[in-house]
Amino acid sequence: MTTDPRGPGDLWGQLVRFVVVGLFSAVVDLTVYTLALHLGLWVHAARALSFVCGTSTAYALNRRWAFRVAGGRNRVLGFTLLYSTTFFVILGVNALALAVLPDRSWTITLAWAISQGFGTAVNFVMLRTVVFRS
């Protein structure tokens, strides 16, 4: 008996692939964020730019590998709506973290990590149950 890779029986497989994609996308995101800050971009603009780069990477890899689904206008629209919402959420979480964390050399990176972690948790649930559901 073969389990449908998009069915509930593959939750752990999807989760593992999602984490791998997420880690890679997070490296893209953090690299762009750090480079943009180094080049003098305003912190919130740098976070927005890095989010777009990381998200584009995540969409391509999650669709093809983590959730193994074909494209389609509805999936792209659902993904765009989800990540547009997440975009504002992570910017808010990042701004809140910057406001409450002490002003240290590691503050910007920790704020990024907190906002990234929060967004990632929301995204997995929504991608699996709404965007890439079978």
Rank of each mutant, 00 (worst) to 15 (best):
M1W: 12
T3R: 12
T3L: 12
T3C: 09
R6H: 00
G7C: 00
G7V: 00
G9H: 01
D10N: 13
D10T: 11
L11E: 14
G13N: 13
L15I: 13
V16N: 10
V16I: 15
R17K: 15
R17T: 10
R17Q: 14
F18Q: 08
F18E: 07
F18Y: 15
V19Q: 12
V20E: 10
G22I: 08
L23A: 12
L23K: 13
L23Q: 09
L23N: 12
L23C: 12
F24Q: 06
S25Q: 05
S25K: 12
A26M: 11
A26T: 09
A26F: 07
V27P: 02
V28G: 04
T31G: 12
L35N: 05
A36I: 01
L37E: 00
L37F: 01
H38I: 10
H38N: 06
H38G: 13
L39R: 07
G40A: 02
G40F: 01
W42T: 13
W42E: 15
W42M: 03
H44P: 02
H44W: 04
A45F: 06
A45L: 08
A45T: 04
A46M: 02
A46V: 00
R47D: 13
F51A: 11
F51W: 07
G54V: 04
T55P: 06
T55M: 04
S56H: 03
T57F: 10
T57G: 05
T57V: 14
Y59N: 07
Y59I: 04
A60Y: 06
A60W: 08
L61D: 06
N62F: 09
R64H: 07
F67Y: 03
F67M: 08
F67C: 05
G71H: 04
N74W: 06
N74D: 01
R75M: 03
R75H: 04
R75T: 10
V76D: 05
L77I: 10
L77W: 14
L77M: 10
L77D: 05
F79P: 07
T80R: 03
T80Y: 04
L81T: 00
L82W: 00
Y83C: 14
Y83E: 14
T85A: 13
T85W: 15
T85G: 15
T86I: 14
F87S: 02
F87E: 01
F88E: 09
V89T: 00
V89E: 00
L91A: 11
L91P: 00
G92Q: 03
G92M: 02
N94A: 05
N94Y: 11
N94P: 01
A95S: 09
L96E: 01
L98V: 03
A99N: 05
A99F: 11
V100N: 02
V100G: 04
L101G: 03
L101V: 07
L101N: 06
P102M: 05
D103G: 02
R104L: 10
R104G: 07
W106K: 02
T107R: 11
T107L: 08
I108E: 14
T109V: 07
T109G: 07
T109C: 03
W112A: 14
A113V: 11
S115G: 13
Q116G: 10
T120I: 08
A121D: 10
A121L: 09
V122K: 01
N123L: 08
M126S: 13
M126C: 09
M126N: 08
R128G: 00
R128H: 05
T129A: 15
V130R: 02
V130G: 09
V131Q: 01
V131M: 06
F132K: 03
R133W: 11
R133L: 10
R133S: 15
